[in-house]
Simulated scan of single mutants.
Amino acid sequence: MEIREGLTFDDVLLEPGPSDVMPAEVDVSTRLTRDIRLNIPLLSSAMDTVTESRLAIAMAQAGGLGVIHRNMTVDEQADQVRAVKRYESGMVVNPVTVFPDTSLGEVREIVARKKITGFPVVDRETGRLVGMLTNRDMRFERDPEVRAASLMTTGELVTVREGAGREAAQNLLRTRKIERVIVVDEDYRAVGLITMKDIEKAQAFPHAAKDEQGRLRVGAASTVGDAGYERAMMLAEAGADVVVIDTAHGHSSSVAAVVERIKRESNRIQIIAGNVATYDATRALIDAGSDAVKVGIGPGSICTTRIVAGVGVPQLTAVMDSA
């Protein structure tokens, strides 16, 4: 048996050297995968006591990424992902809409579930925009059976055509003193929503990690087997920027198999797989198609894997070997 030295981060220090860089000049942005850039190199863990939509939003606003845990139903986890993607964006793509015959009770259920207060009202048959229903329209109405058609604003709806820049929408919001602008296509169907609140949030967090559509980035955890594959596909459909195949022991055939299966279905889905602690395990997950590899077995301050199972590699050595 060859017993080699293993180092954790507490075992070493960085030796200082000459520098002409000031702290304010430092760029700490990094690539999580080839397609995803973060402005700070920090992710929050996919633990049920750590990351749900609230923390994922805060992480993305700071420039990092939160990974929504999987200790919930697939639908609940997908809703958490959607909550992050809808929180702040250049444009809410495919906004939640209601029909003229939707009851106020149904609308209020959507408000409670999705935390949305403004809805384009569209024709049930054609999808064309016919009105706008906001919290102001609903505030003093008590009858849950009253229909959206009776409450919605139908006058001169403020819209912009699909493809219009943010500045055009921002000018409309300011000059018309309104909260939201509806984005419509050439057939007058509501395809997006731009709100003053989102613009203000974007200005408050200039270093936020965002996707190509201006929405906050978010990750979500899945697992192996058919259930893990189906969860991963639903999370990707909900808008997750990256799916994390999150297991205690990532150097297993089941982890490699689900990565390969997801990548065969869509190479667009970004995959992080783990957890691993060796060169061979990292190589296996890269060969399976993983876009990033999660390194670390038992390095957390409250993790007992190394103590209970007697398994793991000191984290600095694990990172060096994996790299």
Rank of each mutant, 00 (worst) to 15 (best):
M1D: 08
R4N: 04
L7P: 05
D20H: 02
R31Y: 15
R37C: 15
L38M: 07
L42F: 02
L43W: 04
A46Q: 04
A56M: 01
A56L: 01
A58F: 01
A62W: 01
V67N: 06
H69G: 12
T73Q: 01
A78T: 08
A78H: 00
D79F: 11
R82K: 04
M91E: 09
V93M: 09
F99I: 07
T102Q: 10
E106H: 13
R108I: 13
R108P: 14
K115C: 11
T117Y: 12
V121C: 13
R128H: 12
D137H: 02
E141W: 00
D143K: 00
S150N: 14
T153G: 14
V158H: 10
T159A: 15
E162N: 11
A168T: 11
L172G: 06
L172P: 02
T175G: 14
T175W: 06
R180G: 10
V191E: 03
V191F: 08
E200F: 10
Q203T: 11
F205T: 09
K210M: 15
V224I: 11
G225R: 00
G225H: 04
A227M: 12
Y229P: 13
A232K: 02
G239L: 08
G239F: 07
V243L: 11
A248W: 02
H249T: 00
G250H: 05
G250D: 09
S252Q: 07
S252I: 00
A256H: 03
V258H: 05
I269R: 05
D280G: 09
T282M: 14
D287C: 11
S290Q: 03
S290A: 15
K294P: 12
K294I: 11
K294E: 11
P299R: 07
T304I: 14
V308P: 14
G310Y: 03
M320V: 14
M320N: 09
S322E: 09
